[in-house]
Computed example of a mutant assay.
Amino acid sequence: MAGRRRLSGSSAAVACLLLASLTACGGHPPADTARRQVQQLLDLRAAAVLHHDPAAYAATGARAPYAALKAVPFDAWSYRVTALRRGAGTATADAELRYRVTGYDKAPVTVGRTLTLSTTADGKWYVTSDRPARKSAQQLWDQGPVTVVRGAHSIVLGAGQSDASLRGYAGLADRAVPAVSRAWGTDWSRRVVVLVPGSLDRMAALLGAPAADYRGIAAVTTGQTGGGDRGPADRIIVNPDAYGVLGPLGKQVVLTHETTHVATRAHTDAATPLWLSEGYADWVGYRGAGRTPEQVAPELQRAVSGGRVPTALPADGDFGFAGDAARLARAYEGGWLACRMIAAHWGEDRLEAFYRAVGAHGERAGAVEGALREVLGTTLEEFTDRWREYLRAQLG
């Protein structure tokens, strides 16, 4: 037939390669084109989040999780596709989600997400689901609509919680921030982010850990140790099951303790033993509360009065949440009494300076010993002996 000729096998292959940037020989877009299309789709989805545009978000596919996260103030939200796996009219995208909460995060929070997608009849992609990537923790909006309560020094995000409950947390956080600044100083953000899920199981899902690890733990703080003040804000994550059974003082102590971790984060690193970081946070939490050592340290009091005075300061392993609850309590109480002893004998300013000096060392070996010598003028052996005598005096 005039004007047409049959291509040889090699010519057909060349033609296929020449057309690869437009379409695959099998009739489907090539992988790099599909990935680019999916990235563009997710860029539109991210823009819809930032511009509070539910219609634009719905145009990209599934409405979830927009309805759950729309109340959260974001000043950054973006996806970066890291892998795309194709199927017949479907795809699964691995993506890196980066977001910042307005006024709190100085750098983005980065989390892994897995999105499933399908194509329309005209070949356009749309999102069918958006979920945490394998081995990645949930975000609060994965658990339902997020309610936001703002305090003077805090933002409280809750899922499955009433407004009244969240306002209570904001009040506690707003009292904690100035209390921490009075003890530690003001060289920190003086703002906290509090996440309140609906249950222990949901708290564990936010941490990507088994619920059994946090049973009986009222709250934890997540963040990057030694990261300075240019990273994402720490998150105080509450276990409402354990927190709810505390009295007013206990609730305030817990929020102040966790807020202390936020304040001291830039000076806490691999050099800082847990007896110091947890003991200092407890010392700030109980500072001015009028509680006696017997009231604050009942487990250690039982041990000391029974003649079982610890021979050494608590080791990091003693602070394991999934271990012996009594040993965990004694570890916290021992760290608190060590910090209380420093404040009583050397002064509160020296206690703060000691904490900063330990963190400034950068590595564990020699950090405590150096800070004891330089700031407190003592040795680890002398300090430990003094601490053991202090336990006997306060708890015996």
Rank of each mutant, 00 (worst) to 15 (best):
R4A: 11
R5I: 11
R6N: 09
S8T: 15
S10P: 11
S10V: 14
A13H: 11
V14T: 14
L17R: 11
L18E: 13
L18M: 10
L19G: 12
C25I: 10
H28Y: 11
P29S: 08
P30Y: 02
A34E: 15
R35S: 11
R36C: 02
R36K: 10
R36S: 12
Q37Y: 05
Q37I: 03
Q39E: 14
Q40R: 15
L44T: 15
R45Q: 11
A46T: 10
V49R: 08
H51G: 03
H52W: 07
A58M: 05
Y66D: 02
A68V: 01
D75N: 13
D75M: 06
A76L: 12
V81S: 00
V81T: 07
V81F: 00
A83L: 00
G87A: 00
A88K: 04
T90I: 01
A91V: 06
A93H: 03
D94K: 12
E96Y: 05
L97Y: 10
Y99A: 06
T102C: 04
T102Y: 15
D105W: 12
A107D: 12
V111W: 08
R113H: 08
T119V: 07
T119E: 14
T120G: 08
G123E: 05
S129K: 04
D130W: 00
Q139G: 08
L140I: 15
G144H: 08
G144Y: 04
G144N: 08
T147Y: 01
R150M: 03
I155K: 07
I155S: 02
V156T: 09
L157T: 07
A159S: 15
S165G: 09
L166M: 10
A173P: 06
S181D: 09
A183W: 09
V196S: 01
S199M: 05
A209D: 14
A211N: 07
Y214C: 00
A219L: 02
V220C: 00
T221Y: 03
G227H: 01
D229Q: 13
A233G: 04
V238D: 00
V238L: 02
D241I: 00
A242V: 01
V245D: 10
K251Q: 15
V254C: 04
T256A: 07
V262G: 01
A263M: 09
A263N: 08
T264N: 05
R265F: 06
A266H: 14
D269F: 02
S277F: 00
A281F: 02
V284D: 05
G285P: 00
R287P: 04
G288F: 08
G288C: 04
A289F: 01
G290P: 13
R291F: 06
R291E: 13
P293I: 04
P293F: 06
P298R: 02
P298L: 03
E299Y: 08
Q301F: 01
V304G: 10
V304H: 12
G307V: 07
T311I: 02
A312E: 14
A315Q: 13
G317P: 10
D318R: 13
G320E: 13
F321C: 01
F321W: 06
L328G: 11
R330T: 09
Y332N: 08
Y332H: 11
E333N: 13
G334F: 07
G335Y: 09
W336E: 12
R340P: 05
R340F: 06
E352Q: 10
A360T: 04
H361W: 14
G362I: 01
V368H: 06
G370H: 15
E374L: 06
E381R: 11
T384K: 03
T384A: 03
D385R: 14
R388T: 09
L391H: 07
R392D: 11
A393E: 15
G396H: 14
